[in-house]
Design a protein around this nucleic acid. Structure first.
Length: 254
DNA sequence: AATTTGACCAACCGCCTTGCT
DNA sequence: AAGCAAGGCGGTTGGTCAAAT
């Protein structure tokens, strides 16, 4: 980014986007592609912050978004992935073509969490919840979702290799899975940003987006074992067909 | 009919990493 | 090396709507 290119801050609107704002953003992205979000409000004539534009595009305007409700298979996969990698919503969303991290997160908080609790399962640990008497409460996960179960059974979507390889790990060791996942950061920087900062092809770029299901992420070997730092494994399943890295802020450890 | 509850969704916030100067 | 801004991410909040009471 160039500091010289940074223009004066504009007044920003807040709250729900109007159709006019959506149209402006869509037009701008169609012409110039994404990237340089900080400049987009000024160039597109939108009284919003760059972050707001980015969020609106990622979570609502992108043409490859799935608007339909999540299927049972997708729900099962989310539960399974969450039991392994925790609240790494962007990683989970990367396994669900057309879904956003925000959407997955919302669905988890609004729906799956409650469903698991009703089944007597702690949504954070994926372990059965003990009641006041110390006994297990309620049913456990459906067999195809229970620890060690095969997520591919019952029609559930398969796990990416990079995650499924850890699926047999003791869930208690994985309950803070977020701490075990360290996206590999490369010099190509962040997903979705424009590496060349000019001549961006929005369509091509977004074909590589995580939520189109093509983002590659890697679980570092060291994140599971000890200090080994060299071995990484690329996810090359049907859900992650092309090598694009999931990068950005490393998962925060509580 | 009015109120409550739950599900779902959109958006904002704060923090972190990255890249540039 | 330090400072700054952009971009990315997870957490959280607030609004809407439909079903239940």
């Amino acid at each position: 980014m160039s500091k010289a290119s940074r223009g004066p801050r504009q007044a920003v609107r807040r709250g729900p986007w109007s159709t006019e704002e959506d149209a402006k953003l869509m037009n701008h992205v169609a012409k110039h592609g994404v990237g340089r979000w900080g400049d987009i409000p000024r160039l597109a004539g939108i009284e919003r912050g760059g972050k707001s534009c980015r969020l609106r595009w990622l979570n609502y305007l992108r043409p490859d978004l799935k608007r339909a409700a999540l299927s049972q298979e997708e729900e099962d996969l989310i539960i399974r992935l969450h039991s392994i990698i925790g609240n790494s919503w962007s990683l989970i969303a990367a396994c669900l073509p057309g879904r956003t991290d925000n959407g997955v997160k919302n669905f988890w908080n609004a729906s799956i969490k409650h469903k698991l609790r009703r089944r007597g399962i702690d949504p954070d640990t994926h372990e059965p919840v003990a009641d006041d008497n110390g006994s297990r409460n309620g049913d456990v996960l459906p067999s195809h979702l229970a620890a060690g179960g095969d997520p591919c059974s019952h029609g559930a979507l398969p796990l990416p290799d990079s995650i499924s390889r850890y699926a047999d790990t003791d869930p208690l060791q994985l309950q803070h899975g977020v701490a075990l996942v360290q996206p590999v950061v490369s010099s190509s920087s962040t997903v979705g940003s424009n590496p060349s900062s000019s001549g961006c092809d929005a369509g091509e770029q977004w074909n590589n987006r995580a939520d189109s299901g093509s983002r590659l992420f890697e679980l570092t070997e060291s994140s599971i074992t000890t200090t080994t730092t060299t071995t990484t494994e690329s996810a090359t399943t049907n859900h992650l067909p092309s090598p694009v890295q999931a990068v950005g802020a490393a998962p925060r450890v509580p």
